[in-house]
Simulated scan of single mutants.
Amino acid sequence: MGSWKSQVRAQLLLRDQREKHPYEGVFTSLSHLEERLEIRLQILKDVQSNSSEGGVNVRLLQLQLRESEHLAEKLSQTVSDLTTVLHLKDAELQHWQSRVSRHRQEALTLAKGGNALKASVYRQEFAIECQTKELAALYRERKGLKETLSQARRDKEDLLRRWMEEKEEEAARLNKYNATQERWQRLARHLRKHLAKKDGDPQESGS
Score class of each variant (00 low, 15 high):
2 G>Q: 13
4 W>M: 15
8 V>T: 03
9 R>S: 13
16 D>Y: 15
19 E>M: 07
20 K>I: 13
23 Y>N: 14
34 E>I: 08
35 E>H: 11
36 R>S: 14
38 E>H: 12
44 L>Q: 11
46 D>E: 08
46 D>V: 10
47 V>R: 03
49 S>C: 02
49 S>L: 09
50 N>P: 02
51 S>M: 10
51 S>I: 11
52 S>K: 02
55 G>N: 04
55 G>E: 04
60 L>M: 08
63 L>M: 08
64 Q>S: 14
69 E>C: 01
71 L>R: 11
73 E>K: 00
74 K>Q: 11
75 L>I: 13
77 Q>M: 06
78 T>P: 02
79 V>P: 01
87 H>I: 09
87 H>W: 09
89 K>P: 03
89 K>G: 01
92 E>G: 03
97 Q>K: 03
98 S>K: 12
99 R>E: 13
106 E>Y: 05
109 T>H: 15
109 T>P: 00
110 L>I: 00
110 L>D: 02
111 A>W: 08
112 K>G: 05
113 G>W: 15
114 G>R: 14
117 L>C: 01
120 S>K: 07
122 Y>P: 00
126 F>D: 13
126 F>K: 15
127 A>C: 02
128 I>Y: 00
132 T>V: 06
135 L>D: 04
141 E>C: 11
143 K>N: 14
144 G>H: 11
147 E>I: 01
147 E>S: 09
149 L>H: 03
149 L>Y: 01
155 D>W: 05
156 K>Y: 14
157 E>K: 06
158 D>C: 02
161 R>I: 05
164 M>S: 09
172 A>I: 08
172 A>F: 09
174 L>K: 04
176 K>R: 13
176 K>L: 12
177 Y>S: 00
177 Y>C: 00
177 Y>R: 07
178 N>I: 07
178 N>Q: 13
183 R>V: 07
186 R>H: 08
186 R>D: 06
187 L>H: 01
191 L>K: 03
195 L>H: 03
197 K>V: 05
198 K>G: 02
199 D>M: 11
199 D>F: 12
199 D>A: 15
200 G>Y: 13
200 G>E: 14
202 P>S: 00
202 P>D: 03
207 S>L: 10
207 S>E: 10
207 S>Q: 08
